[in-house]
Design a protein around this nucleic acid. Structure first.
Length: 805
RNA sequence: GCCGGGGUGGCGAAAUCGGUAGACGCAAGGGACUUAAAAUCCCUUGGGGGGCAACCCCCGUGCAGGUUCGAGUCCUGCCCUCGGCACCA
């Protein structure tokens, strides 16, 4: 009996991690790569609690893919970094009373240790942190490029103000009216001067490209929803005084049923349209609407409709009749034109409003459903010359006829808003602008970048809406770069999502300080070959990154317009049926598991939990199964190594066939990220090898190669135990022979009337007649046929024969 | 309300094109080894019923229908659940 040493993961893993670092095995030659493969995963925000199981799950899944590609003959660049700016970090720093500038490096150190410990194939030479002035210099540079191109602009806007953060937050960071980071804090409406990026100009392109991007369907659907394209028309309603009110509608076919109009309370025409006797009521209503927070303003719920009649009328362009103009907070200034034509018969909201205020309701599309009917399946009524026309046809016809009178324009609307990037906070890259009384906002000259974030002790935000940086006078006052007069620095910092909107461009070029990204490196490595990440960033990070890349492409800074041609979304790891979060107290930290079981076992266990793209509930009950599997691999490999070199017996036919089937399945499943079934296939193979008492190199070596992406340390160790001098990751993924993968004999199931009654063993490719003849000899089949004539037979070669009697 | 996932044993899950439902793993029960335990190995394990036995029969993939020789898989109508959006005109 051979003496097999104990499998001690801690020792094995330390040994190989040390060797990878020493020999720079995970650092491809970025200038002369062989089949470059840029394997990207979403870089973490370095929280104080450290890497949690959700991060590990995502990184492991991406790392397996990278290692698989490397074994398949690619030079794989797998970088990692830290998304360390932002309100998250700053809030935590505030809560513990430590400066974020001190805290973040500590957190990053913890993350580095954890990332090394789990065995990621990272190229640490190219690590980056968004808080590094060498990085955010270029974040600011990007802002300036957008500013110069007119795509970054200031506007006074109703913005989301979080009283806890004491800052503006983006629409995307508001969840049902509550702050993303403070689920118990309602976001308020404030009017402030803000910096915006004109992402809405790119709505159509961002939407269109989704058709060809090789992305998870779920992610594309989320982005499509978010962009929210709707086709319709702008219609003009004129007042007797000649004022034109433009509305947007997706249902121009219902214009004959527009019995009143509603403007948003903030609409510019409210003043001129208000009749004297209504002025008091109107101003009172407008005041109330403005005081209201965004939530109660926007959430429909049980809230009944409110509104005030302006006392004036406009002409319905289709019917010519005068209809009353109202204001109501159910019409939003941010969408469309901030004004609507109300068609109570065919819109739920208008119906509710009309019912409440006794306004006329006129049916114009007969659908056979009770009012309000919103279906477009119907024919027009009460619509003059269009009566009887199907609703879908009528829309374009009506628009065309009104267009002739200059009262309509076909129009496409998007739900996507411009990206508000201002943050009245401290922990972010200062927006590189100098305000001058003569010149207005002037960009900081590129030679003066970065505008460094000063290390001020007093970084707390206050409720004034002005950034803490404004209190730092020697930083705040600066000469205008254009006229030389006294100017003031912009004190807002930019949104964290700007930091992460371009980090993938920086990774290959981190060593260059005189350019954001090197053209040659970028040409070699970008766009990103494979990006794997979570759908929680489907509409934030991924949309912004696409937008920034598109702009950079237009401005000639990169040669492609889409940064991530291939993206795969992984699932979410939850705990006890709920998202892991600190507030719930259900965050699982991987360290203890790795210490107890080893990184390889833990990696594989996470992948074995369920389908990678679905995620799942974290429990640790099954982890022993993986460990037992690796123990068996360990033992078998040592036994194989102990066999004398001459003992090169071939594989038994059954084992050889199973091996080729296994290689085929593991190859396909790893490529499609179906890691759970790939692992199951390797287990099946190992079970057979053991059952057959085989312990030869031919049996174990291909298994080690397949296992290497999943359990890299163990695979390296056993590879060297088997006498190989170089890293297993310098080897090639095993090939399979299709002919060897198929069995010579197959078992064909025999059904009688659709029920399995027997099975016969025949040569692969046997004819129907042959199988039938064999089947009719089967006792059980005979019994169920019971002498009845066979009316029909269905034969699926090598699988099933069904006899209908 | 709208747009996506999902619903299969005690549990996590498999099932390529409509062709043997439950692979793989956990847990559980029994056995071997052991002074004992752990570890390891072997056997059993969807539910119900029959047989001394090799085995045999019936039922079974959220619910109700349908298409088909044959449905977890396709169609129609529901229910539940998770995620996203939501007074977006």
């Amino acid at each position: 009996m051979t003496q097999v040493p104990n499998y001690d993961p801690a020792a094995v893993e330390a040994k190989w991690q040390e060797r990878w670092a020493r020999e720079h095995g995970n650092e491809p030659d970025l200038d002369r790569p062989d089949r470059p493969f840029y394997n990207l995963m979403m870089f973490p925000y370095p929280s104080a609690e450290g890497l949690h199981v959700g991060n590990m799950f995502a990184f492991t899944g991406a790392d397996i893919y990278g290692r698989f590609k490397r074994l398949s003959g690619h030079d794989v660049f797998e970088p990692i970094g830290f998304d360390a700016f932002g309100i998250h970090s700053e809030n935590y720093a505030l809560s513990v009373g430590t400066h974020p500038g001190k805290l973040i490096p500590q957190n990053i150190e913890t993350f580095r240790r954890q990332l090394r410990r789990f065995g990621g194939m990272f190229d640490w030479r190219h690590e980056l942190s968004t808080t590094d002035p060498r990085y955010y210099k270029w974040t600011q540079w990007i802002f300036l490029q957008l500013f110069k191109a007119g795509l970054a602009f200031r506007k006074k806007a109703a913005v989301n103000w979080c009283p806890k953060d004491m800052s503006v937050v983006a629409n995307e960071q508001v969840i049902n009216g509550y702050c993303e980071r403070h689920p118990d804090t309602k976001v308020e409406l404030r009017y402030l001067e803000q910096w915006f990026f004109a992402i809405s100009k790119y709505a159509e392109r961002l939407l269109k490209n989704l058709d060809w991007l090789d992305w998870s369907d779920s992610t594309r659907a989320l982005q499509r929803n978010w962009i929210g394209r709707s086709e319709g028309a702008e219609l003009v309603f004129e007042t007797p005084a000649g004022l034109k009110i433009t509305v947007f509608t997706t249902r121009p076919d219902t214009v004959f049923g527009a019995t009143y109009m509603v403007l948003a309370p903030e609409h510019a025409l409210v003043d001129p349209l208000t009749a004297e006797e209504q002025r008091r009521a109107v101003s009172a209503y407008r005041r109330d609407a403005q005081r209201m927070d965004v939530v109660s303003r926007r959430v429909a719920g049980e809230k009944s409709k409110t509104g005030v009649f302006l006392g004036s009328y406009a002409r319905n362009p289709a019917t010519g009749e005068a209809i009353p103009i109202w204001i109501a907070d159910y019409v939003l200034m941010e969408y469309g034109t901030g004004a609507i034509m109300a068609v109570p018969a065919h819109d739920k909201r208008d119906f509710e409003f009309a019912t409440q205020f006794g306004l006329p309701i006129r049916e114009v599309v007969r659908t056979g459903e009770p009012l309000p009917s919103v279906s477009e399946d119907g024919a027009l009524v009460n619509s003059g010359p269009f009566d009887g026309m199907p609703s879908r046809e009528a829309g374009p016809r009506i628009v065309a006829s009104l267009k002739a009178k200059g009262l309509a324009t076909p129009q496409v609307q998007y739900r996507l808003h411009d990206w508000c990037i201002s943050r009245q906070r401290f922990w972010g890259p200062p927006i590189p602008i100098i305000h001058c009384d003569h010149c207005g906002p002037v960009g900081v000259p590129e030679k003066d970048l970065p505008v460094e974030l000063p290390f001020i002790e007093d970084f707390r935000p206050d409720a004034s809406g002005v950034s803490p940086l404004a209190r730092h006078k020697e930083w705040y006052f600066v000469k205008c770069p254009r006229c030389g007069e006294q100017g003031r620095r912009e004190t807002d910092v930019s949104d964290t999502f700007l930091d992460s909107a371009w980090y993938y461009l920086r990774y290959p070029s981190t060593e260059f300080d005189d350019r954001p990204w090197d053209p040659t490196r970028t040409k070699t490595w970008l766009p990103v070959t494979s990006y794997i990440g979570g759908n929680e960033h489907a509409v934030l990070h991924l949309l912004y990154s696409r937008f920034i890349t598109m702009v950079l492409q237009e401005l000639g800074h990169v040669a492609f317009e889409e940064p991530f041609p291939k993206f795969r979304a992984h699932g979410l790891i939850i705990k006890d049926g709920a998202k892991m979060s600190k507030s719930r107290g259900n965050v699982v930290i991987p360290d203890a598991y790795i210490q107890k079981w080893g990184a390889d076992t833990f990696r594989m266990y996470l992948m074995f939990l369920g389908p990678f793209h679905e995620g799942g509930d974290f429990r640790d009950e099954g982890i022993t199964g993986i460990r037992r599997f690796l123990d068996k691999v360990w033992t078998l490999a040592h036994e194989a190594a102990a066999l004398t070199a001459g003992a090169r017996s071939g594989l038994p036919a059954g084992v050889e066939r199973k091996l080729h089937q296994t290689i085929k399945k593991v190859t396909a499943d790893t490529e499609s990220l179906d890691y759970n079934t790939a692992i199951a296939a390797m287990m099946e193979y190992l079970n057979l090898v053991r059952d057959e008492g085989v312990s030869s190199r031919q049996a174990i070596e291909p298994l080690l190669l397949m296992l290497a992406p999943y359990a890299p340390h163990l695979a390296e160790e056993l590879w060297s135990v088997l006498g190989h001098g170089q890293s297993i990751f310098c080897e090639r993924w095993p090939a399979f022979d299709e002919r060897l993968a198929v069995a010579g004999e197959v078992e064909v199931v025999v059904q009688v009337n659709g029920k399995v009654r027997g099975r016969v063993s025949v040569n692969r490719g046997a004819s129907e007649a042959e199988v039938l003849a064999r089947a009719m000899q089967d006792e059980s089949v005979k019994k169920f046929v019971n002498g009845n004539p066979v009316r029909k037979t269905i034969y699926v070669p090598d699988r099933v024969l069904n006899l209908v009697v």
